[in-house]
């Protein structure tokens, strides 16, 4: 494992141990619902399923198809807020 991956790994461990990861997940979920991201994605999924027909679409195909759009549609403010939360968390909890 290179240094970068190692650091990611230990940050992730710390976040899980403290329960912060679950809190971040809840925060993200709330933010994405609030800003309408969830509704947009739901509409997008419905559209794809309607085009292909319910019996001709698998979850894997659906995930591959919507992922790029899903990532692009997350507002910058939401990304910033989460990044800030993680930064604050790391400031309070020394890693390594």
């Amino acid at each position: 494992m290179n240094k970068d991956a190692q650091l990611r790994h230990s940050i992730n461990q710390k976040l899980i141990e403290n329960g912060e990861r679950d809190r971040l997940k809840e925060l993200l979920r709330t933010k994405l619902i609030e800003c309408g991201w969830k509704d947009q994605m739901k509409a997008h999924c419905k559209e794809i399923i309607r085009q292909k027909g319910l019996d001709h679409v698998t979850i894997e195909e659906l995930v591959t198809e919507i992922t790029p759009r899903g990532r692009a549609l997350v507002p910058d403010s939401v990304k910033k807020e989460l990044l800030q939360r993680i930064r604050t968390f790391l400031g309070k909890n020394s890693i390594i």
């Binding site: 494992m1 990611r8 790994h9 992730n12 461990q13 710390k14 899980i16 141990e17 403290n18 329960g19 679950d22």
Partner: peptide, 25 residues
């Protein structure tokens, strides 16, 4: 998946990696 106790979270943090490539994501 949803760990309530600290003990469970510690175990999750330690052992939740892909057994083939070691990734946690």
């Amino acid at each position: 998946v949803c760990c309530g106790s600290l003990e469970a979270r510690k175990r999750k943090a330690r052992s939740c990696v892909c057994h083939l490539c070691g990734a946690h994501f």
